[in-house]
Structures are given as structure tokens and as C-alpha cells.
Amino acid sequence: MDENNINTNDVMKSDCPVCGGDKTLEVINKTDNIPYFGDILETSVSCKVCGYQSSDSISLQTNDPSKYTLQINDTKLNTRVAKSQTATVTLPELGLKVEPGPKSQGYVSNVEGILNRFEDAVVRAIKLEGDSISKEVEENALNILQLITEVKIGELTTELIIEDPFGNSVIDDDDAEKELLSQEEADKLTTGFTTIDQ
């Protein structure tokens, strides 16, 4: 982050939630324009005492709710994908789906990066279960890892679907099909935002 482009009004001091340091947490807010995402608010926090740090990016604009679908295999691994913090990513034939949660972040990657994220999540789940993992769960997880490998080496084709109720995601490929979602379809999607009814 280029601090020369940050207005002094965008830098604040706060108490650290980790070490409790008095005004040791620096909070920096900055707006930027990112390809695919448009205008975003970038927030980074860091504590000079304990080293705690965190960052997040939030899209400041909305577009029409959209759904992108692409048949993927080894020839599509380098296709660029922009996923906003509100998008749902699905590989239906593999039985994989990630919906946004409160800590969901947007990112720009490629198809291989998406597959790697799913792969990493399955491996973490196996490690988390440890010795208590059931044979059925372990076999299912290993089967998913095998299917992901088959997609990467071109032995399997599967759909990649990205649905975004705020339309800030894209699969940047001529073969990708884009369709606008109805408001009813968009309302069924998880956004990751917490709302409080008054």
C-alpha cells in the first residue's frame, strides 16, 4: 500500500483488541478503483506493539445480480476470475460450494487458483478431523481431491459457477455464459452481511 496516496484523515489510532495497547492500533482506510471490482474501500489495521494485523476490501458499488457459468478443464486453468466478497462459488459436479460468510473477502485469481482453494479447504478439513475422521468422510474427501486433480490434468470437465447478488464478480472468458438473475433469485443467495432487524 502506497502511504503517499493516503489522506491523513484516513489514518486513525485505536486500542489494540489483542494486546490491549493504548492507541497502538493504526487503522488505515483508503478508496481505490480495481479492475473488475470498481470502487472499493480498503481497510488495514496493524498494531506496532504485538504485530497484530488484518485487512479487508469492500466493494462500494453494486451492479445487476449476475451468474457466470464456465465449463472448465486443463485448457481453462489460466482464465481470470474476479470473486467479490458477496459471491457464491460452485463446482456442482464435484459437490463443492462456498458461500460468503462474515469474513468473506474478494479476490482476483484464475481457475486453477479457485481449484487450489477448494483443494486446500478439503485438506484442512481432513487434518482438522485427525484420527477421529470416519472412513466414509475420508473416502469422500479423497475422492474430491482426485476429481480436482482430474480437472487440472484434463481428464475431467466440470462447471464453475459464480453467483453474485451485487454483480461485482466475473469470469473473464469468451466461453463464459453470463446471465442476469431475477431479484427473487438474488434474494436467495447468501451475501455474508449481517443484518439487524429493528
Rank of each mutant, 00 (worst) to 15 (best):
M1I: 08
D2F: 09
N4E: 06
N7S: 13
V11T: 15
M12E: 15
C16T: 12
C19T: 04
G20S: 07
K23N: 12
T24L: 09
L25G: 10
V27C: 02
T31Y: 11
D32Q: 09
N33A: 13
I34C: 08
Y36E: 10
G38C: 08
E42H: 12
T43S: 13
S44H: 09
S46C: 00
V49T: 13
G51E: 01
Y52D: 01
S54K: 05
D56A: 10
D56Y: 14
S59R: 01
Y68S: 03
L70Y: 12
I72A: 05
D74N: 15
N78A: 12
T79A: 15
R80H: 11
V81M: 04
K83A: 15
K83F: 14
Q85R: 14
T86W: 08
A87V: 03
T88W: 04
V89Y: 03
T90P: 02
L91D: 00
E93Q: 15
K97A: 11
K97H: 10
P102S: 13
K103S: 13
K103H: 08
K103L: 13
S104A: 15
G106L: 00
G106Q: 01
S109P: 08
N110W: 12
I114E: 03
L115G: 04
F118T: 08
E119Q: 14
I126W: 00
K127N: 12
L128T: 07
E129T: 05
G130P: 07
S132D: 11
E139T: 15
N140W: 06
L142F: 01
I144H: 06
Q146D: 15
I148R: 05
I148P: 11
I148E: 04
L156S: 13
T157P: 02
T157A: 01
I161A: 08
I161D: 06
I161K: 01
I161V: 15
E163H: 03
G167L: 09
G167R: 06
I171E: 06
A176W: 00
A176G: 01
L180T: 07
S182H: 05
E185H: 06
L189C: 10
T191Q: 07
T191C: 09
G192D: 04
G192S: 04
G192H: 03
D197I: 05
D197P: 07
Q198E: 07
Q198I: 15
Q198F: 08
